[in-house]
Amino acid sequence: MDETGKELVLALYDYQEKSPREVTMKKGDILTLLNSTNKDSWKVEVKITVNGKTYERQGFVPAAYVKKL
């Protein structure tokens, strides 16, 4: 869990989004878990840094590609 009590997951593999509802992640990324009720895909939040500014983006990733921490 992070400092706000949200559950975290670790990306086990790289994943490139295939639709606007998904998010891209790299192996080793730590993501905030938002919903894990679907056995196939979990909703997560990723933090992306562009030019020194951090943005948050929500979307789905394959459940088999992440592990709860």
Results as ranks from 00 to 15, higher is better:
N51Q: 09
A63Q: 04
S19P: 04
R21Y: 15
G59V: 05
T24L: 03
Q16S: 11
V46K: 12
K26C: 11
D2H: 14
I30Y: 04
K67Y: 09
E45D: 03
E7F: 11
L31Y: 09
L8P: 03
L10G: 01
Q58S: 11
T37S: 14
V9C: 13
L31V: 05
V46Y: 09
K68S: 07
K68C: 10
K6D: 08
T32F: 09
K39W: 08
T32K: 12
E56K: 15
E3A: 14
G52S: 05
Y13W: 10
P20K: 09
K53C: 12
Y65A: 11
E17F: 07
K27E: 04
R21P: 04
E3C: 15
Y55S: 07
G59K: 00
M25G: 01
K43N: 04
A63K: 06
P62A: 05
T54C: 12
K53E: 11
M1N: 13
K27Y: 04
G52V: 02
E22K: 04
R57Y: 06
T54M: 10
M25N: 01
Q16F: 14
V66T: 02
L69I: 14
E45L: 15
I48M: 10
T24H: 03
K53N: 11
A64W: 10
G28N: 05
F60A: 01
D29S: 06
E7N: 11
S36K: 07
M1L: 12
L12V: 05
V50W: 08
L33A: 01
V46E: 00
D40W: 15
K47H: 10
K39H: 10
T32Y: 10
D29Y: 05
L69V: 10
K43C: 15
D29P: 00
T49L: 11
A63P: 06
S19T: 11
S41C: 15
N35Q: 09
K6Q: 11
T4L: 12
K43H: 10
S41N: 11
K18F: 05
K39T: 11
L8A: 05
W42R: 00
V46M: 10
T32I: 15
N51E: 10
Y15C: 05
K6A: 11
L10M: 14
D40L: 12
M1E: 13
L69Q: 02
N51C: 12
K67F: 08
V66A: 02
E22N: 04
V46G: 04
I30Q: 02
S19Y: 08
N51V: 04
E45Q: 13
Y13F: 12
R21S: 14
K67G: 06
V50D: 07
K18D: 05
S19V: 05
V9R: 01
Y15K: 01
V9A: 08
L12M: 08
D29N: 05
V23A: 03
F60N: 04
V50K: 09
K53G: 07
R57N: 03
Y65R: 04
K47A: 08
T4Y: 13
E45H: 07
